[in-house]
């Protein structure tokens, strides 16, 4: 695995009880250290350490599953299966990538398996309230409104994408997985992954940020 996430998991934001119980924001390096220590303990068979990993990471894993499946029920199933698979395979996690990257790959693989098992080409709408939560608000309210609006429209546009395009653009441009990792987890070639990515970007750009003369779909 070669991808280095542009952002580590939000240990503090995700409400971890042990790792960030006092609610005081801590440095990213310290959070990484916490995760690394938990992973090492879990690899040695410490079930409580793995449970703590679940507490720290499950919101991010669920968000990815929800974006990939477009459905809260499917996302719940995918996340449960993903953690079971992670638990079974934790001794094979070599630590040459971030734990989050490793977990995202498992979630992506489980999502693909789950959706293919269900035989769906999804265009469903989310069954939950989908307004995004901006946990890093800007000081400029106009800027904040613009960004929040863009995110909302982008989330809507992503959900409207066919599943095969949606999974690639979410994994690459939102979760920063490498082309190779995406191709492997989705069971497609790297070339196919890139082609799907470019198509997805083009559709999103046309829908969310159209040029004058292009029709913006509502």
């Amino acid at each position: 695995m070669t991808a280095v996430p542009r952002r580590i998991l939000r240990v503090v934001d995700s409400g971890a009880t042990g790792a960030a119980g006092n609610g005081i924001a801590r440095s990213e390096s310290q959070s990484v250290t916490d995760l690394t220590r938990l992973v090492e303990l879990a690899k040695s068979g410490d079930r409580e350490a793995f449970d703590q990993l679940v507490r720290v990471t499950h919101k991010d894993a669920y968000a990815l599953a929800l974006r990939l499946t477009g459905n809260s029920e499917d996302a719940r199933d995918v996340v449960q299966d993903s953690y079971l698979r992670a638990y079974r395979g934790i001794d094979r996690f070599r630590g040459d990538a971030q734990f989050s990257t490793w977990l995202y790959r498992i979630v992506a693989n489980c999502s693909t398996t789950h959706l293919s098992r269900r035989g769906r080409q999804r265009h469903d709408t989310l069954s939950i309230h989908t307004e995004v939560i901006d946990n890093k608000p800007e000081h400029d309210p106009v800027m904040q409104g613009d960004r929040a609006d863009l995110r909302r429209r982008l989330d809507d546009a992503i959900r409207e994408l066919p599943e095969r395009l949606r999974s690639v653009v979410v994994l690459r441009d939102v979760y920063d997985l490498s082309h190779e990792a995406i191709a492997e987890e989705l069971g497609i070639s790297v070339t196919a992954a890139k082609v799907r990515l470019h198509r997805a970007r083009r559709r999103l750009r046309e829908q969310v940020l159209p040029l004058p003369g292009e029709q913006q779909q509502s």
Partner: peptide, 13 residues
């Protein structure tokens, strides 16, 4: 905007 989506978590049960 896509990069920033990860910073905007979806509501979780």
């Amino acid at each position: 905007a896509l990069n920033s989506l990860q910073e905007a978590p979806l509501p979780t049960d």
